[in-house]
Design a protein around this nucleic acid. Sequence first.
DNA 1: TATTGTTATACTCTATAACTATA
DNA 2: TATAGTTATAGAGTATAACAATA
Lengths: 158, 158
Amino acid sequence: MSKRLESDLDTSFMDGLIGYNLRRAYLVIARDFAQSLAGVDLGPVQFTILTLIDANPGCTQNIIAKAISIKRTNFVALLDGLEAQGLAERRPSPTDRRSHALYLTHAGQTMLADLKPRIIAHEQKFAAIMSSAEADLLRDLLVRLRRVGADSADETEI
Amino acid sequence: MSKRLESDLDTSFMDGLIGYNLRRAYLVIARDFAQSLAGVDLGPVQFTILTLIDANPGCTQNIIAKAISIKRTNFVALLDGLEAQGLAERRPSPTDRRSHALYLTHAGQTMLADLKPRIIAHEQKFAAIMSSAEADLLRDLLVRLRRVGADSADETEI
DNA sequence: TATTGTTATACTCTATAACTATA
DNA sequence: TATAGTTATAGAGTATAACAATA
């Protein structure tokens, strides 16, 4: 197998680009993440929303949407999906009648407790190929990278 | 502005995940990359294809598709777009009548020469926030990360 | 039988514009 | 006037299944 490797190709220009390498690594991890969620009707973003509601009960849609850099407008359907599955719910906000206070249902908490170990196992598969010092630096560099775009970002806070 | 920061949110679980930080950084760079290509009818993947055909004239669709981890099936429309704009062309392969030999047209070479400086400027905006040693380590870590998924990848070579 | 390219199709994520109800 | 949520819609990017031509 692999009679002809893609290493025959000259990819030198792309290989030097941070963005290109970032995309390649992201795609690999995103696929593995999705496999970790196999059998569950949740996308990666929905899992993230689940964890954030769990850690911040009563928070609003906007707060979460900004925190994870997705548009308010795209948040609606994602939350609709969680609500339809009985995992989360919108309650009227006690302080602002425009906004909703978000909570996990009991089923949502159970689901999250079931999924977290899967995600941690998925993560460890990747963390295993670097030292903890390298992992720390990697996270730090990724955070710094995403702050570069902070000015050009319109409504989605970085 | 920014009367209430998302840092009020407890995002500790997600912050610890490599995949999450990778996604956030990737999205920021991908948006900036797209802006660098503003006014040109090319997506990021099409730009990548353009550079690879330029560096590897006569190569086949499959070789490039594998090199950048996209499906053969999705490559077709991307290349169609390049051909429709007169930037690239499919010629019959001299050795295998199933495959096509890919080449840039003169217009394609001119376009690429125009775009490369834009992409390099885009890259430098991000490279500027780290030392060259950090950038080298980052690229190395990203390559190592994407190789973790090498076994579970079916047809798209990592 | 396996591989290259192809069509058709669907799903996820992201994006913009315009609306409503509140503030 | 601005903000929170919503609807509708569009576009990338990615995914699978099935096919024709060639190896």
